[in-house]
Simulated scan of single mutants.
Amino acid sequence: MKPETTLKNILNFTKIEHTAFSLPLIFTGAWLGAGNRPPALDVIILIVVAAVGARVFGMSMNRIFDRHIDRLNPRTANRELPAGKMDLTQASAVAGGGLLLYLAACWALGGWCPILAPIPLVPLLGYSLLKRFTPLCHFGIGLCLALAPLGAFVAASGHTRFTWPVLLFSGFVFFWLSGADIIYALMDIDHDRSHDIHSLPARLGFDGALRVAGAVHLTALGILIAVVRTLNGGLTAWIVLAVAAVFFALMYVPAIPVPKRFFPISTLAGIAGALVPMVA
């Protein structure tokens, strides 16, 4: 296989470009950890490296665990493992490389970071397994990303004395992504029911799952309001929050196809939400 083909397969396998959409959430945690200002450049670089490594590890393990499920789903059958574009050894090497990158960045950040580094690995390793046991699996991926701003806070502050704004913001991330993942799973209702895959859409149906996602996202917006109030945010913060609310609302417009509700609309809702504490 040509080197450029191998590289392309790895990039597609890990969806590395999607890391860019989680970085604003991570930067917000670092911003709050540095005392509502930008952290030192070297800290930012190491936080980004850690985020990339963690995502590569988590996504790779997700693809490895789900390779047999993906083979049965027409929407995912062309992914690298089920389509034979990569083998299990290559996939495991990519996962191991992401893990080493993450741990190296945590070690370089020092302080509490290498001590706490194993904690995010548990949900990163296990979230994709939850769909085999519980329809609440969507909240597993929400937990994975909710830990990211907390980790960035520790990296930028050098301590674990979490402030209310970063704890609330982490809660926003949890509910935002969990709700978005429920919407994402709407695309696989029939497949999930046919193959005993647990998800809220498979359990509750299209409309029932949308109602749950709506309640989850209303919770996310309520928490974001609490963030603004806690930080005594001004007009700019409220305007940005209103923009985030518009994107949240667009996820429930029937005329918009489900794939677009998840990406880019849910992503834009998360990015707008991430900007709120930084402009408050």
Rank of each mutant, 00 (worst) to 15 (best):
A242T: 13
F172P: 06
A244N: 02
R211V: 11
A209R: 06
A50D: 05
F27A: 15
Q90Y: 00
V48K: 07
V94A: 01
L25H: 13
P114N: 09
G233L: 07
P259N: 06
Y127N: 06
P135I: 04
G98N: 00
L130K: 11
I47Y: 08
V43I: 14
E17D: 14
A156C: 08
P74H: 10
F133C: 06
F248G: 13
I16Y: 02
E17H: 14
F206V: 01
A280L: 10
G96L: 10
L23R: 09
L167E: 08
R132Y: 14
F57N: 01
L81N: 09
F162N: 02
L143D: 03
G273F: 01
S194M: 13
L130D: 12
G270T: 01
R203K: 15
H18S: 12
W107C: 09
N9H: 15
H68E: 15
I115P: 04
A77L: 05
L200G: 09
A245T: 13
S92N: 11
V212L: 14
G84T: 03
A242E: 04
L109A: 07
N62V: 03
F153N: 08
G126S: 13
I119L: 15
P277I: 09
F169N: 04
K260M: 15
M278P: 05
L177R: 13
L130P: 06
V122T: 01
L88D: 05
V56R: 01
L46M: 09
Y252Q: 06
A202I: 01
G58Q: 08
L7G: 06
I26S: 10
A242Y: 10
V166A: 05
I223F: 12
A249N: 04
S128D: 07
P264N: 11
V253L: 14
L100C: 10
S60A: 15
V246I: 15
A77Q: 13
K131T: 02
A156F: 11
D188W: 06
I239D: 07
V154D: 07
V276M: 03
D188R: 02
N62P: 01
M251H: 13
G97Y: 01
P24T: 06
P3F: 05
L129D: 10
R203Q: 15
D190T: 11
L224P: 02
A180M: 04
W31E: 03
I223M: 08
W238D: 00
L23G: 09
A272P: 00
V240P: 00
P264V: 14
F248A: 14
T230Y: 08
I265Q: 07
A215M: 14
A155P: 04
G270H: 03
V52N: 08
L143G: 04
I44M: 15
S22I: 13
D181E: 15
L150K: 02
T134G: 10
G205H: 03
S266G: 05
I189N: 03
G111P: 05
L46H: 11
A152I: 00
A255S: 15
M86S: 10
F133E: 07
L88Q: 03
L101E: 01
L168I: 05
K131E: 08
I26W: 11
A245Y: 11
A155F: 12
V246D: 03
G33E: 01
P114L: 00
A20G: 11
P123M: 08
P264R: 12
V240T: 04
L101R: 00
V246R: 11
A249H: 10
P24M: 10
R75S: 11
R229E: 15
L204F: 14
L100I: 13
T267Q: 13
L25S: 15
K8F: 12
P24W: 06
F174Y: 14
A51F: 10
A180Q: 06
